[in-house]
């Protein structure tokens, strides 16, 4: 019964290869995108920690500073 299901009257090779190709593409795309996301997050937090150390050097009222700080605090949550 399982062999009949896999064989699909001789069309199994076409049907399974189409479905497997789709799943492989999904997994690969998800892997690449999540890897890049992790890389950028790591970059952000390493830069942010350097920035935090020298925070006194920066202008506290700068719009950029406030925006980056807000983002860092929320992302950690």
């Amino acid at each position: 019964m399982i062999l009949n299901f896999l064989n699909m009257d001789g069309h199994g090779i076409f049907v399974w290869s189409a479905f497997i190709f789709t799943i492989i593409n999904f997994v690969t795309l998800h892997f690449i995108i999540s890897k890049n996301l992790k890389k950028e997050k790591m970059k952000f937090f390493s830069r942010y920690s350097i920035y935090k150390k020298d925070r006194a050097k920066y202008l506290p009222e700068s719009k950029e500073t406030v925006s980056v700080l807000k983002f860092a605090v929320k992302s950690k949550n």
Partner: peptide, 26 residues
């Protein structure tokens, strides 16, 4: 849903890239 998920992850990456650039400028 999968394309929405990939879009959100990629969009998130692009926004973080922008913030990294901003941090470099500070």
């Amino acid at each position: 849903l999968f394309s929405l998920l990939i879009f959100l992850m990629k969009y998130n990456t692009e926004l973080i890239k922008l913030r990294n650039k901003r941090l470099d400028r500070l």
